[in-house]
Amino acid sequence: MANLARPPVAVSSDAFFFEKDKTSSILILGVGNYLMGDEGVGVHLIQEMARRTLPDYVDILDGGTGGFLLLNCFEAYRTVIFVDATMDGKEAGTINLIRPKFASDFPTALSVHDVGLKDMIEAVYLTNLHPDIHLFTISVEEITPMTVALSPKVAAAIPSAIDQILDLSGKLTTVHP
């Protein structure tokens, strides 16, 4: 039997944001285009997290290329951890943590979804919401249209990135009980 890629797992719906008080929860939000190879690493990471047992204070969301559609996340959560790909010239699979305060603090756009992401962050601050935002980036070397496969180095970075995200989440929970 051939080793087929698993289809994406539906993580939530619009009703998800109204199910419970999320002020003490941390949202892990993976963004990217699942159909563009390594550019979709944020979505792949969320799919991997969906297969794990996570702490009760962690919620995950496959944000895809949502842009402004994700704005309600910032109304519901005080802390949001983004995961996205970046083409920053570093070796593929390099993981970095950035504390963006403005849209200009986000890495250079890889595709159209980043324009929406940057605009959404500016809108968050214009609405007078002040969430604690953290951004994990995973370096990619190229984008391969019309494939869901990740390059070996980028795929190999996912477990380490998840460990770093969960470690940060645990530390943030003690800071923001």
Rank of each mutant, 00 (worst) to 15 (best):
P55T: 03
G63L: 10
G40F: 02
K20N: 12
L97S: 10
D56Q: 15
N72T: 05
R6W: 02
F102S: 07
L135I: 03
L110P: 00
Y57W: 13
L166Y: 04
N96T: 11
G42A: 11
H176Y: 14
F74M: 09
L27E: 01
P55I: 05
L4P: 00
R78G: 13
V140Q: 01
E122C: 12
P100C: 13
A156S: 12
A15F: 13
A103F: 09
D132T: 04
M87I: 06
D167W: 08
G93P: 08
K90D: 10
F18V: 07
G116N: 05
P159T: 06
L27Q: 04
T86C: 15
P177I: 09
G66A: 11
A109V: 00
P7E: 10
S104D: 06
A157Q: 03
L35D: 01
R6I: 03
M36C: 07
K118C: 08
G37C: 08
I133T: 00
P152M: 13
A76V: 02
L110A: 08
T79Q: 10
G116F: 04
T144P: 00
S12C: 15
E142G: 10
L168F: 10
V175D: 06
L54V: 07
M36I: 00
F82P: 00
V11L: 14
D59Y: 07
L54Y: 09
F16N: 07
D21V: 04
G66P: 00
L27V: 02
R78W: 08
I95A: 14
T173L: 15
D114F: 07
V43K: 02
A85H: 04
L168C: 13
M36L: 10
K118H: 01
A161Q: 06
S25W: 03
T108K: 13
L69E: 03
